[in-house]
Simulated scan of single mutants.
Amino acid sequence: MNRISLSQANTIIAAAFEMASQSGLKPLSVAVLDPGGHMIAFQRQDGTSMLRQKIACGKAAGALALGMSSRRIRDMAVQWPAFVGSLGQISPDGVIPAVGGVIVVDAEGEPLGAVGVTGDTGDNDEACALAGIAAAGLRAQE
């Protein structure tokens, strides 16, 4: 396997939504991208705001582009704000330096794609992404 399948992407989204519902979170949007940053699947819960698709994609695509979670990108933005701020202009899907973008890897640590979740707090977004990844039988980059 060299990328997340559509079936796995749908499982990731369903499990992320299930966790959000069980936890009483705000409505989420979830994007699943392949290793090249192309969208495999996207869904949003009722009541999400209009920019959520782009934000979810920007979290996931930014993670893939820099090879690290969007949590680490957020941390890097504190140290190098001009650098991280400039990345959005050169990335087709943007780079969102906010928690909720997670890279999915194979057993050797090679990327299979990424998941971007937005709608609640960054920590809750990331927890839902991780729950979805686990439900699909995949693993997140550490």
Results as ranks from 00 to 15, higher is better:
Arg74Asp: 09
Arg139His: 12
Ala135Trp: 10
Phe83Cys: 10
Gly116Gln: 09
Gly36Glu: 04
Ala20Ile: 02
Leu66Cys: 11
Gly109Trp: 15
Ala140Thr: 00
Asn10Trp: 03
Thr11Cys: 11
Val78Thr: 10
Ile13Lys: 05
Ile96Thr: 10
Glu108Ile: 06
Ala15Asn: 09
Gly100Val: 04
Phe83Trp: 07
Val105Glu: 13
Cys128Trp: 05
Glu126Pro: 06
Ala129Thr: 02
Ala98Tyr: 11
Arg44Phe: 11
Ser49Asp: 11
Leu28Phe: 12
Val95Thr: 07
Asp125Lys: 00
Ser21Gly: 03
Arg72Leu: 08
Ser29Ala: 14
Gly122Asp: 13
Ile4Gly: 05
Ala16Trp: 08
Ile13Trp: 10
Gln22Asn: 15
Thr121Asp: 08
Ala60Asp: 09
Leu112Pro: 11
Ala31Asn: 08
Gly24Asn: 02
Met19Asp: 12
Ala114Leu: 03
Glu18Gly: 15
Gln8Tyr: 00
Ile103Gly: 01
Glu18Arg: 15
Ala82Trp: 10
Gly119Leu: 05
Arg3Glu: 14
Cys128Asn: 03
Ser21Pro: 01
Ser5Thr: 14
Ala127Asn: 08
Gln141Phe: 06
Asn124Ile: 09
Pro92Ala: 09
Pro97Met: 06
Ala20Gly: 13
Gly94Ser: 04
Gln53Cys: 09
Ala107Leu: 04
Arg74Asn: 07
Arg3Met: 11
Pro27Thr: 08
Cys128Ala: 14
Gln141Tyr: 06
Glu108Pro: 14
Asp106Cys: 12
Ala31Pro: 11
Lys54Arg: 07
Met1Leu: 11
Ala15Lys: 09
Ser86Ala: 07
Lys54Val: 05
Gly67Tyr: 01
Gly119Pro: 01
Gln89Ser: 09
Trp80Lys: 07
Gly47His: 07
Gly24Gln: 06
Ser23Met: 12
Gly58Pro: 08
Glu18Ile: 10
Ile133Trp: 04
Gln89Glu: 10
Phe17Asp: 12
Gly116Trp: 04
Ser23Lys: 14
Thr121Ala: 15
Glu110Gln: 15
Pro35Ser: 00
Gln8Cys: 00
Ile90Val: 15
Asn124Trp: 14
Ser70Tyr: 02
Thr11Leu: 07
Pro92Asp: 10
Gly37Arg: 02
Leu33Val: 03
Ala98Gly: 11
Asp75Leu: 07
Asp125Tyr: 03
Val32Cys: 10
Ala114Lys: 00
Glu126Leu: 06
Leu25Asn: 04
Val95Cys: 04
Gly88Leu: 00
Leu64Gln: 04
Gly119Trp: 01
Ser49Lys: 11
Val30Asn: 06
Glu142Val: 03
Ala114Ile: 00
Ala60Pro: 13
Gln22Ala: 15
Asp93Met: 06
Glu108Tyr: 14
Ser23Asp: 13
Arg44Asp: 09
Thr118Met: 00
Leu33Gln: 04
Ile96Pro: 05
Val115Glu: 00
Met50Pro: 11
Glu18Thr: 15
Lys59Pro: 03
Ala31Glu: 09
Ala129Val: 00
Asn2Ile: 06
Glu126Gln: 05
